[in-house]
Amino acid sequence: MKIVVIGGTGLIGSKLVSKLNEHGHKAVPAAPSTGVNTLTGEGLTEVLKGASVVIDVSNSPSFEDDAVMEFFRTSTANLLKAEAEAGVTHHVALSVVGTERLQESGYFRAKQAQEELIKASGIPYSIVHATQFFEFMKSIAAAATDGDTVRLAPVKIQPISSDDVAAAVGRTAVGAPVNGVVEVAGPDAFQLDAVIGKGLAAKNDPRTVVTDPHAPYFGTELQETTLLPGPDARIAESRFADWLAQQS
């Protein structure tokens, strides 16, 4: 089965391409570096010829509110139009657990807009909501840093490894479209401020984590369970402590 992976040269995309090809599929990475640009439509017609499934794990190069909204609206609309013309029968997109609860954030408003376009397209689809990647903890700390202080809310987070995300997206892609959302998460829930503090300490980072219930998370204030998946989430096996030990 030919599967086109939009964003196929990135962290998740490259893992997906490898995993799918190992299982006998023809996985094709599509990105500007391979001649495919979803913002302009360049290369879409050619790469989608003969494709049964398209997986979109691309991300905006800018997280500025207007730019990220333009990216997801334009790229998703171009992609869905090209898929309809090519006869693609399953559109799979990677999104984030809690997107619908994080609408004070411009980034998550853009992800919600992306999901709404997919649902309205008429193409059978599956949306995979993943909790934050282990690898993203560094970015969370950076976004919350003010000088030598990292301000974070004492809320729950249940991070997942990028390998497990890629595996979950791949399994979803080769299955029947669910025409809905599938949630995936890591096996352990942590308090956000505590787990970021542990990660910084493991790397001998001198920054100090300060607990602040009102600290924004990429522009939005969090409630206790905003970042947690629902009770039907598929739980991955890789543990954050093991991953962190490997990084050290």
Rank of each mutant, 00 (worst) to 15 (best):
R239E: 15
Q158K: 14
G35R: 06
G186C: 08
P32K: 10
E46F: 07
A31L: 08
T38R: 07
G170A: 10
G41H: 03
N204P: 02
P32Q: 11
S58R: 02
V181A: 04
E42Y: 01
T226A: 01
A120D: 13
V155F: 07
E116I: 03
A215H: 10
L44K: 00
V210Q: 14
V195E: 01
D56W: 00
I12P: 03
T40V: 04
D146Y: 05
A194C: 07
G87H: 04
A82C: 01
V5K: 02
Y217L: 01
G199M: 15
G43H: 02
G170Y: 05
V47A: 06
T220P: 09
E64W: 00
Y125K: 08
T99G: 07
A144V: 07
E85Q: 12
G180Y: 07
G180A: 10
L228S: 08
Q246C: 09
S95C: 13
P159N: 13
T89N: 14
K119W: 03
T9F: 08
T40A: 01
G106T: 05
E85V: 10
D212H: 06
A113P: 11
S105N: 09
I196D: 08
A189S: 13
D205I: 06
H25T: 07
V53S: 09
A236P: 11
F133M: 14
N37V: 07
E70K: 15
T225M: 14
M1P: 11
A120I: 01
D188H: 12
K81I: 10
S52I: 05
N59G: 09
S58L: 10
P32W: 06
S58N: 03
E237M: 12
F71D: 02
A82K: 02
Q247I: 08
N37G: 09
K2R: 13
T149Q: 14
K15Y: 08
V53N: 02
T38N: 04
T220W: 05
G170N: 04
F218N: 09
A166P: 00
S62Y: 00
R151C: 00
K49N: 13
D188Y: 05
A86N: 03
L11E: 11
A201C: 01
S14A: 11
A215D: 04
D193K: 01
P206M: 08
T34I: 04
V4Q: 02
A201D: 06
K198G: 11
T211K: 07
A51Q: 09
S52G: 15
G106V: 12
K81E: 12
Q132E: 08
M1F: 09
M137A: 12
Y217P: 05
A189L: 00
G24C: 07
N37L: 07
G170P: 06
V53H: 04
D56G: 00
T225E: 15
